[in-house]
Structure formats: C-alpha cells, structure tokens
Design a protein around this nucleic acid. Structure first.
Lengths: 160, 160
DNA sequence: GGAATCCCAAGTAAACTAATCGGGATTCCC
DNA sequence: GGGAATCCCGATTAGTTTACTTGGGATTCC
C-alpha cells in the first residue's frame, strides 16, 4: 500500500495555498517552484481539486488558484480522497457496491478487517485540517525526521 | 489507496489455513477451490508467505501447506506486510531511507500526516490475529454486510 | 510407477503512473 | 489593442505494476 504522487503533491499544493489563504490567487508556477513539481503535471492535479470544488481558479495575468473555503474547513481527508480516490480496500465496501455479488468476492470475516482499516484511515485523515498543518498544531510526537529539525532557516515546520 | 489481490487472497489463504491448524498439510488446490482463486496464482502468493516463514510446505502426495505458528501468534499485519510490502506512504518513512535526501522529497508537515496514517494502519492490522478471525472475536460493530448475516448454512462468520 | 503435490521461470494483456508536449482561451496592464 | 501571464485541454509516452496463464520439473506417498 503506497500513496501515489497525486496524493502527495496534491496535499502539498493545498498546504501551499492554505499558507497564502486570503492573499488572492496564487499562480501555479510559484507553487510548482516551491514544491519542486512539474508545472504541467500540477495543472492536471489542480484540475481534479477544482472539479471537486476545493479550489477556484482565475485566468489571465494575476490569475491563479485559491481555496474556496477557509483552511480549517478543508480536511486532509477531503484532499486525499479527491486525489487518490476513496480508500476502499475492497470493492464491496464501496458505497455503490451491489451486495448480491457478495459471496463471489470476499470472505466476510476478512472483509471486516478491511472495514476496520478503512474506518481508521478515514478517521485519521479527517482529524487533520489544512489550518492544523499551517499552524503546526498537528501532534508530531510519533516519530521524527532528524534532518529537518535542525534546519532553522526554513519556514516553520517545513523542510524546503 | 487500494489493496491488491495479493493482500486479499493472501489473508484469505492464511485464514483458511488457520481454520485447519493442527490437521496436517492442507493442499493448495483445496484452498484455491474454497477461496475461488487460480491455483497457479495462489502458488506464487504462498511462495512469499513461505519465504517469510509464516507457512511451511511439504511436497508430494498428502503434501500441502500449514502455518508455522499457532494462529494467535500471526497477526493480520504480518500477513499483509508480506503480501503488499510494508505500508510506507512515502519513501522517507521507510526504515532504510537516507535522510540526507530529505529536502528533495517532501514537506515535513505533510510528511507527518503520512506518518500518522502509517502508525494507525499498523496498529489496526497488528491488533488482529488469525485466531481472532477464526473465532469471530473481531469487533464487527462498525458497518455490516446484510447479504452475509442472513445466510446460516455457511460456516460461522463466512460468506461462501 | 503413477498420482498428487509443491516448485520455478517465463510470458502477457491490461491498466496505471508520472509525467511530457503542444497548443488554445482568457485576462490584466501598459 | 498588443503582449505577457495565466489557466485549460487533449494527446502521447515510457516505464511499472497487476493479475494472471503457460509449461514444465522435482518430490513424495501408496
């Protein structure tokens, strides 16, 4: 189980926008530079976030992207589910699954393991919003990245 | 984020073996039949579990596979990590990652979101062992599969 | 000796990933 | 009104992964 670059880049872009919330449209090339991601690729990712209603765009010079809601009203789960697709470890946990097909697919006991996993994942992702990220109020107690902690020139809580 | 068939089939095969623990080698074709999985594909999956030391095989007629440990000593996490690879949402959370590369890769704040996700996932998967599955002592309270509950002809806790 | 098993390596079609490429449409500002 | 800055869109692509299938070989029991 891995995250794709879509989820990772997408969340970093949203974090970047959250840091600049209220300052007007943020052009994508500045995000691409800061986050070191290909501009064209990021455009594709932003299209998903726009269609999901999480960001709004304005075209032309001085255009760019901005969050459609305050950072505290957007959870990490909102972003990740848009970028990665909803976390359905197995098909028959998906909302639109026809349970007539049940016996063809999965052992019940085993399926509920996946259900527990899904619940836990959503709970974690929905418990953190973009404002938490900006303010560094996320509890970082579990595990630490030594390489980052010592670099004090960078903006708070960031690596680059 | 999805589980591949490797993780799903692998856990079902291990559950099947756990139900028959102590009864001698279980031939793979019987597992493949019960779990409705291609025999040859299942062979490949079992090879991983064997190399990881979770099952032992005996060849020849009356041969088959069996757990190397009692079901209560094998967690779902043990199985899933073998089958899916360890859940490292991003590279730099992996054990062998060189943190010199840190600034190239990921924003710290965002990374700790992934760290929390990893911790929670491992905690859930490691909290359930194969005996729990066999005895149905897993707490199934969150969510339910209507199609299964009503079918009383099947072995307890199963769908098929 | 033959049936039942596990073991192994190779091949494959389809999907997915992580982009790149090339251009078009809109808007601001001078 | 012209040009720069920006978003928008569709096509293409190389590489990887997934979920198998195919075809056999080795071992063991009876």
């Amino acid at each position: 189980m891995k995250l794709s670059t879509r989820g990772r880049y997408g969340l970093r872009a949203m974090y970047d926008l959250a840091l600049r919330y209220g300052e007007g449209p943020v052009p994508l090339n500045s995000i691409a530079d800061r986050q070191m991601v290909s501009l064209h690729y990021l455009e594709q990712l932003m299209a998903k976030l726009r269609k999901a209603g999480l960001v709004a765009s304005s075209r032309g010079a001085q255009g760019g992207y901005e969050l459609t809601k305050p950072p505290e009203e957007i959870t990490v789960g909102d972003v990740v589910r848009v970028m990665e697709g909803s976390f359905d470890p197995v098909q028959c946990l998906a909302h639109d699954f026809d349970h007539e097909d049940c016996e063809q697919l999965e052992d019940c006991v085993v399926r509920f393991v996946w259900k527990k996993l899904q619940d836990c994942t959503n709970r974690v992702l929905d418990s953190i919003n973009l404002r938490d990220l900006c303010e560094g109020t996320v509890d970082l107690s579990s595990g630490s990245c030594g390489a980052c902690a010592s670099d004090s020139q960078r903006p708070m809580g960031t690596c680059q």
